[in-house]
């Protein structure tokens, strides 16, 4: 006979989660409830002397099928709201009536059946299943193999989208970028070496001016960018004799050529 406690455990483990199929709102919650139903059914199979099927149930249904459901759920957008408008008037009540009638009919008819179960004999362990599967049903097995391959190819064909435009190579993309007026070289990294090496400070160009676009746009949008002017100011206040000739205000292009600075130093040395 069959373990009674196991039956009630399985019944409690399967029916309430299955009801979430009707009442839960989010598809991800429903998928996880159905996983629970599948695990409960696997326990039922083990209790019904079919341990091989129990393991297959866990591997195939909870492991593969329901995970694929979740994948597709994520692909099509998990937070998509279900449209609850009724297009056929009273469809909800008609459907509930039909399904309830079906349940009533099946339960009342099946409940009246009195079959005395055979005493416990064969157990569906892998060896026994294999004897039947590869003996009597070997042709069905072959056909199922063909079916699986066909299904895989069919899924590939259906989800494959042909490329509408020719593939653009990396060098073509780069040429287009330069043609559009982009800088052909990399942007400078943010941060001032040896002073403030954080990402929020703009880099300084050779004349000591901050380069605004060296800081990430995200920090700019969040208003977390530091100006960089204080670093520049400290650079100019240093008592470096080489900077002697530099004007104290904003550095100018005119004053800052290397030749002029060298000449100024030479004059200083002569004095």
């Amino acid at each position: 006979m069959v373990n009674e406690v196991l039956f009630w455990v399985v019944a409690v483990l399967t029916v309430p989660p299955a009801l979430s199929l009707l009442f839960a709102r989010k598809a991800a919650h429903i998928a996880m409830s159905i996983v629970l139903v599948m695990v409960g059914l696997a326990a039922a199979y083990v209790g019904l002397d079919a341990p091989f099927l129990g393991v297959v149930q866990i591997v195939v249904y909870t492991g593969a099928v329901m995970m694929m459901f979740l994948f597709v759920l994520m692909l099509v957008g998990v937070d998509r709201r279900e449209d609850l408008r009724e297009t056929i008037t009273g469809q909800r009540w008609i459907a509930l009536f039909a399904a309830g009638g079906l349940a009533l009919l099946l339960v009342s008819v099946v409940g009246r059946v009195t079959i005395e179960p055979a005493p416990r004999g064969v157990v569906g362990n892998p060896e026994e299943i294999a004897m039947v599967l590869f003996g009597e049903y070997v042709l069905v097995m072959e056909v199922l193999g063909a079916l699986l391959i066909t299904a895989a190819v069919g899924a590939l064909v259906m989800t494959h989208t042909p490329r509408l435009t020719p593939r653009r190579t990396q060098s073509e993309l780069q040429a287009a970028r330069v043609l559009a007026g982009a800088d052909p070289v990399n942007k400078p990294m943010p941060g001032v070496f040896a002073r403030h090496n954080a990402l929020d400070a703009p880099a300084l160009d050779p004349e000591g001016r901050p380069i605004e676009h060296s800081v990430s746009r995200v920090l700019e949008a969040r208003d977390q960018m530091s100006e960089g002017t204080d670093f520049r100011a400290r650079l100019e206040n240093t008592r470096n004799p080489e900077d002697y000739q530099r004007p104290s205000g904003a550095p100018s292009h005119d004053a800052d050529d290397r030749k002029g600075r060298r000449e100024g130093r030479d004059e200083e040395g002569a004095q």
Partner: peptide, 21 residues
């Protein structure tokens, strides 16, 4: 074991209700 068949009918009805609803 017929109880399991009754359980199966209930689950089947729930599944069909979900398909309809």
């Amino acid at each position: 074991p017929m109880n399991y068949v009754i359980l199966a009918s209930i689950l089947f009805a729930i599944g069909s209700a979900a398909v309809l609803l």
